[in-house]
Design a protein around this nucleic acid. Structure first.
Length: 237
DNA sequence: AACTTTGGCAACCGCTTCCCT
DNA sequence: AAGGGAAGCGGTTGCCAAAGT
């Protein structure tokens, strides 16, 4: 009976596997180790490739939005693999590790909180929904906790208030006349900043709007993108 | 400086599901 | 329809480095 290694992968083994896959592709995991000259099980090779060697794997540095997606989807009963599908580049194993090492503890001690979904609200409210597949499948477009993001890219008071109170605008049952709803539905531009007593600076004077737009585009997509079109004003000369 | 605790991550194991014959 | 192998999934373990005492 063939014996298989059960220990961390070496650089040489990694190279062997990568070279083999780049040459022949993935055709049969159970046969692959033999052809690649590896003393590993097919299962081990598959895991090593899927969780580590695949160049599409994104490592470390979880964003606030990613964490929030994990928390919310997990709360809604989604499996690790399903969550991984919603976080391009993240593997189920990595998400699972993230959950067990960080998020479950932070949830337990109240550092982060699950936010109530407003999926149906968004679907019924918006008439500019562009891509419903995400929503209909398994992603609930809850607003992320923006507390940390605010430190980098201060937004309007409503966004900040949403995260501080752990309530998500628009709240369930409110109408589109509600200023919170208006805020979340209206295109983001300088004209749409609500200047109220509770308002704090909406654009970081140092970074300015371009950074904010990047953040909205990259971090919030596709959770806000279906509902909000970000206007790009003329560059300030 | 030495020891202990904690956190993060890679990897394994067992079970389930999928797919082909 | 049934059986068997391959692939997928989730729980768990063990290692290691960093932080704490």
């Amino acid at each position: 009976m063939a014996s298989f290694k059960k220990c961390p992968w070496t650089r040489e083994e990694d190279m062997q596997l990568v070279n083999h896959i780049s040459k022949y592709g993935i055709w049969n995991w159970s046969q692959m180790p033999k052809h690649a000259g590896l003393s590993r099980t097919g299962k081990s090779c598959r895991l090593r490739w899927m969780n580590y060697l695949d160049p599409q794997v994104k490592r470390g540095n979880y964003s606030q939005v990613e964490d929030q997606i994990i928390i919310n989807m997990r709360h809604n009963g989604a499996g690790w693999s399903l969550i991984a599908e919603s976080l391009p580049g993240r593997t189920d194993n990595e998400i699972k590790n993230r959950w067990h090492s960080r998020l479950s503890k932070r949830l337990a001690n109240g550092t982060v909180q699950k936010m109530e979904p407003y999926r149906e609200q968004i679907i019924s409210e918006t008439d500019t929904m562009m891509n419903c597949d995400y929503l209909n499948d398994n992603v609930f477009p809850e607003a992320p906790n923006l507390e940390e993001a605010y430190e980098e890219y201060p937004l309007s008071s409503y966004m900040l208030g949403a995260s501080r109170n752990n309530t998500v605008p628009p709240t369930c049952g409110s109408t589109s006349a509600d200023p919170h709803i208006r805020f979340w539905r209206e295109p983001f531009s300088l004209d749409n900043v609500y200047d109220t007593d509770e308002c704090e600076t909406y654009v970081d004077p140092e970074f300015g709007l371009p950074k904010l737009q990047d953040w909205l585009r990259e971090s919030c997509y596709p959770y806000y993108y279906p509902c909000y079109e970000i206007l790009v004003p003329n560059p300030i000369s």
